[in-house]
Structure formats: structure tokens, C-alpha cells
Amino acid sequence: MDKKKAIVVKNLKKYFKSVKAVDDISFDVNYGELFALLGQNGAGKSTTIRILTNLAVPTSGYIEVAGYNVLKDPTNVRKNIGLVAEKIILYDNLTAMENIEFFGRLYGMKDTVIEENAQKFLKLFDIWDFKDMLISKMSTGMKQKINLARALVPDPQIIFLDEPTLGLDPVSTKHIRDFIVGLRGEGRTIVYTTHVLHDIELMNVDKVAIMRKGKIVSIGSLSDIKKHFKKAEIVEIETDRMLSPNEVKGKILDQDDGYMKIEVEDLNQFMKDISKLNVQIRSFKSLEPSLEDIYVEISEGNDVEEQSKMVNVKE
């Protein structure tokens, strides 16, 4: 048992007959980390979350959450986790507060503590005034905020957020995204899955794992993953005159007046070549590939084995 690790997964497999939903994955998450699990639909993200939260049984593998073996000590695991799943976990015919109280009591919390915590989160989400409203009368955005509050009121150390911004408008999405970043700041461990890659870049996650066909095809910090997948340099350069293709010796992606976006194979050679030209450089920027570029490249790969053996990018 590693006391620093909130989650330890070793050789986890989950097969549904011939379908390999999760195919021999291993990773770990430190306490206080914001860990993002990415992948297309059916990549195995939700199944992995269900196994980690004791909702599904693995075919094989070792899983430790909050220092407890998920298979041998599930109750202690469940005492330390909260879940926001794809489906909103709230009863439509109960009010916001009734839902929060119900779930809080299942954690053995006293009503006064539940009320105190509920007040804190509902006020933070600016929905305290709606605490006595039936869930069925609420908008999707409001429901998701209550849903988050419901998961957080028991004060879990580790929170699993499976697509928490699905179906939300941009304002609600931003609100929830900022809130999640704030949670990490409080020292909680967060496991976050999403399709919205833009969110991951904005949230400055600590670690990203990209899944495809049940396997983790890349894992590491966002910047290291980007470095790893950087096959060619892309530079943006502004000069006092237009450069010809012969002069830049690279693939021109975009140009306008003195601005050029160029893909070059060797950045050092490009710099040497350009310095020999009679041209004044006004600005220069080397661009990183976006997470979306990497994600699409991985997701469109024909075969996981060919695409890449698991890329474990260490900081």
C-alpha cells in the first residue's frame, strides 16, 4: 500500500464475453491530483470508473482506492469516494435538499453536518434558494450542480467525475470546470472523464490518460504528452517581407502579408537558414500541438498496437 497514492491500478482487465472493455491497463493517481481520463465512446473510461467505484467487478487485476483494495475492502473504499456519473444521480420527486440529505445519511452523516455542507456547496453554486425545489422542475444545469453538491456533501477524499459537463451550456460548463479546479486546490483527488478536450487544457490537469479500445495508449502530464506527439515543429513567423517556399524550406500552412505558419522538420536548421536571409523578423513563435490534435491522431489510429505501445510519458 502506497500512502501517497490515491489510486493504484495494475493490469486491470474487464471482459464482457468476447468484448475487451478494459484490456490490461495500469496507472496510478497521487493524492491531490487532477487526473483526466480521455477516450472516445466505448474506449473503456466509464467501465474503468465503474470498477474503481465498486459498481463493476473486474475480470482480473489489482485495484486500490484510498489505500484499500476495492475487491477485498469495498466498504472502506466507498467511505472515501464520491461519484458524479453520466446519468444524474438524483430523485426527480424529491427536492434538492431531500436528495442531499438522503445520500448524506447513507454515509452515516449527522443531519446538522449534512445541512452545513449542503449550504456551503449550494451557496457556492448560487442555488441555495432552490434547495426546496423538486428536481423534476429544474433545468439540466441546475440538476448537475445539485448532483455535484450531492457527491461532495459527504466530503469524499476522491471524487470521480464521469462527463460532468455533458449537455450543459457554456456558462454552466465554465462554472463547473472552475469549481473542479477549486476542489483540486482543496487537496482532493479528482478523476475526470470528458470528451471536451478544451476543458482539460483549461483546467491544467496533473495527469492525462488517453484510452482507446480498452487500452491506455498514452499517459503522463499534458505537456509531456504534447512533446511526445510533436512530430514536426510548427512555427509562426512575422517578417517585413513575404518569404518564398524555397527560402523557408518547409510546408507553409498559412500565410497573410508578412505572417506565415510553417511546418518545419528541424527547428534549429530552420533558424540557421532564416538568419542567412536578408529579412527582418518582427515576431517568432514555436507552436505545440493541441490536445485535440493528439487525441484525433490517437483516436483515428487503425490499431492500438500499431499506433503506439502504451506511451508512459514521465515528467
Binding site: 461519484l83 444521480i89 438524483l90 445520500f103 447513507l106 454515509y107 452515516g108
Partner: peptide
């Protein structure tokens, strides 16, 4: 079907 059973099953209650 609604997903609320998952919410209950993920709590420490036996």
C-alpha cells in the same frame, strides 16, 4: 435505468 441505484451502491451502506 435512471442511474440512482449506482448513486446508492457507491455509498458505504451495505
Amino acid at each position: 435505468e435512471l442511474g440512482t441505484l449506482d448513486g446508492v451502491m457507491v455509498t458505504p451502506i451495505s
